[in-house]
Each structure stands twice: as C-alpha cells, then as structure tokens.
Simulated scan of single mutants.
Amino acid sequence: MLKNNKLLIFILTVGVFGILNTEMGVIGILPTIAENFGVSVTQAGLLVSLFALGIAVSGPILPLVFSGMNRRNVMLLVLGIFVIGNVVSIFTTSFTVLLIARIIPALFHPIYMSLAFTVAGSSVSQEEAPKAVAKVFIGVSAGMVAGVPIVSFIDTAFSYEMAMTFIAVVNIIVFVATLIFVPSMPVKEKQSYGSQFSVLRRPVLWVSMFAVLLLNASVFGVYSYVSEYLYTVTQMTPQWTSTTLLLFGGANMLGNIIAGKVLTDYPAKSILLFPLLLGVVYIVLFTIGEYQVPVMLLTIVWGILAGGIMANVNQYLISSVALEAPDFANGLFVTSCNVGTTVGSALGGVLISTMGVKYIILVGILSVVLGLVLIVIRSTLKSSAAQTSASI
C-alpha cells in the first residue's frame, strides 16, 4: 500500500475529472464550434462520437500494452498527450486538426481511467478497495455531469477559446501534481500478455461484460434524452429542467459515497439490489412522468442509483472476476460502458422516432431486466467456479 493515499486518490479523482471533461465538455458548445469552424452541428458532433469510438477501440488493447510499465510514468504520458491535444484545440483554426487533436487523446483515455481505478484500489487493502475506487468515481461523475454546464457557461460568458482553456488548465494542474506528488510505481510482478488475455476464457467475465453493457445502456438510453423528456412529457420550463439536471448531478456524487461502503460490506447483495431498485425507479417514472414535483424528487433517487452507485457496481462486476489482470479488466470495463452508452442512446433514438419521447423509459426498464438476468447467471457461474476450485 502507498503512503499518503488520500492525496494520491484526490489527484486521481481530479485527473479523471479532467479526462472526462475533455470527452464530455464539448457537448455543451457544439453550436459554437460549428459556427467558429464553419461546419454543421452534425459535423461538430463528430468530436463526441469519434472520441467515444476511439475509447471503445483502444479500451481492451492499450491498457494491456502499458500494463507492465511504471504506472506514474504512464499517467504522465497520457496527461501530457491530453494537455497537448487541449492546447492544439485552443489555437487551431482547422476543423480537421481539431478532430485529430480529439481522436489521439481518446485512444489514450482508457489507459488513464484503467490506471486510476487500479492505483486507487491497490493503495488500500483489498477489502477497502471499493471505497477507494468509489472516491475516484466522484471525478467521473463530475466530469460527465458538471463538466458540460461549466464549459458551456465559460463559452457563453467569455469565448470558445476560454472554455477550451479551462479544460486544458485542469489537465495541466493534474500533470504537475502527478509529477510532484505521485511516487514512482513500478510494476513489481509484470504479467505476460498471454496470462492477462487468459481471463477472457472465463464465461463469467463475458457475462459480466454484457451485464455492464446493458446496465450502462439502461442509464444512458434514458439520460441522453432526459432534457427532451422533461420538456415534452413533464412540461418543465428550461429553468426547472436545468435545476432538475443539477440535482441529478449532485445525487451522482452522493451515490458514489454510498456505493463505496455498500460494495465493501455487502458486494453480493449490492449487485442485485441496486439494479432492481433502478428498474423500480424507471417504472415509477413512466407512471408519474407528467407530474413535475414527484419527477424532480424521483430524479434525485435516479441520480443516486444511476450515476453514482451503478457506475461502481459496473466496475466491480468486471474487476472482481479478473483480479490478477486489473489493468486489462478496467480497460474492458471502460469499453463495455462506452458500447453500452452507444447502444442505449441508439435504442432511445429509435423509440423516440417510432413511439414518442415518453417511451424512452422502456429502454431503461428492458435493459435493467436483461442486465439482472445476466447478473443472476454471473452469480451462478461464480459459485460453480468457486466450488470447483475448492474441490481441487
């Protein structure tokens, strides 16, 4: 275990905020980017979709490639690439260059995310690892939820360049803090690529990955269109919609704190209970979607479950069945989440175009139900594997 792990975990938390803010922050300023670079909003959207594609492609590969190297050096490399990409994004006048400045960091995104979870978990005892990882997930939640309005506000109040400068400054601060305060972390027992790839032979890992894909689809299939849902179905004003989304973001943070404790104390029960509760929330939301105050209150519960607890549950589902290959497992987690986000958003779009905005909730319900089925299968497979090991 590393000394001064509180400072280490804080740096990792801010680090993942910077990484996620780079990914998600531009969502709120796509119209500005389209205007500045003389492209359509759809073309500007490539900055988001190609970033996500880069993550999905590199997620299972690059964390594995860098798994045997000094973890501090790898984190500095990734942060340096993000800083360079951010700086180029501030000054370039070419949309093509801007795309390249986004795609290259996207390929390295899963490396830092994987290392952040691995390093946080290894900085404490194995029993306390879920709590440490949950603290890092606060940065994930902040990057995904708070980053968009912050960058959008700076763009509106000042300029596109200042908004991109904010993103760059966060990454620069984390780079300097990592350089000064994070100790060298050589990998003492370097594993071969073959030994790490061998975890893919386990059916329980594949079931876990598909469960994570479905659970993430259940969250982002609804969240991707929640503003439209609140406008159309709940008939909230733009101001109340913004307030509701802010409450959702704050609830995300609270959910991470809760997740760390319950996954430490009751892991087996948590991975079944919280997806079940999320399904109940969606059913209630589908029933009372027209009522503003109940929906706002229910959004807080949804935020605790969906943004905070479920993210931690997803990471635990994969990492706990591949303990001997943590970097590779966390890379698979990042990829499974991104594929789930893409699938969920696509299904939500199909339902909106065919049935109407109200029915995006069905994406959440259906995905949660299928995810719960896979979690039950996962528990059975894990129990069988444990019994087989015990009898040998």
Rank of each mutant, 00 (worst) to 15 (best):
F153V: 02
V41W: 06
G45C: 08
L179T: 12
T32G: 03
N338G: 02
L213H: 10
R201T: 05
G143A: 09
V97N: 00
L64M: 15
M296W: 11
G289L: 04
I55N: 06
P130G: 13
A325G: 08
V199M: 05
T32F: 01
L76P: 01
V295F: 06
V119E: 00
I365W: 13
P110W: 14
F137S: 14
E228F: 11
V350S: 00
Q315W: 07
L246G: 09
S125G: 15
T13N: 09
V262L: 05
S67K: 00
L374C: 08
T342V: 13
A163D: 03
G59H: 03
V182E: 00
A325S: 15
M69S: 11
V136G: 02
Q43K: 14
N171F: 01
A52P: 04
M355R: 11
V145Q: 07
V212H: 10
E161A: 10
I104E: 00
L98D: 01
M113N: 07
L278C: 00
Y359K: 00
M164Y: 05
V219D: 07
G303F: 13
I283R: 08
A306Q: 05
K188C: 01
V301C: 01
T92E: 00
P238E: 03
I167W: 00
T299L: 13
F286S: 07
S114F: 09
L332R: 01
I300C: 02
S379T: 08
V57D: 08
I9G: 08
L30A: 05
W240I: 04
M236K: 06
F248I: 14
Q387S: 14
A346E: 01
V295Y: 04
S242C: 02
A157E: 12
S379H: 13
S391P: 00
G221W: 10
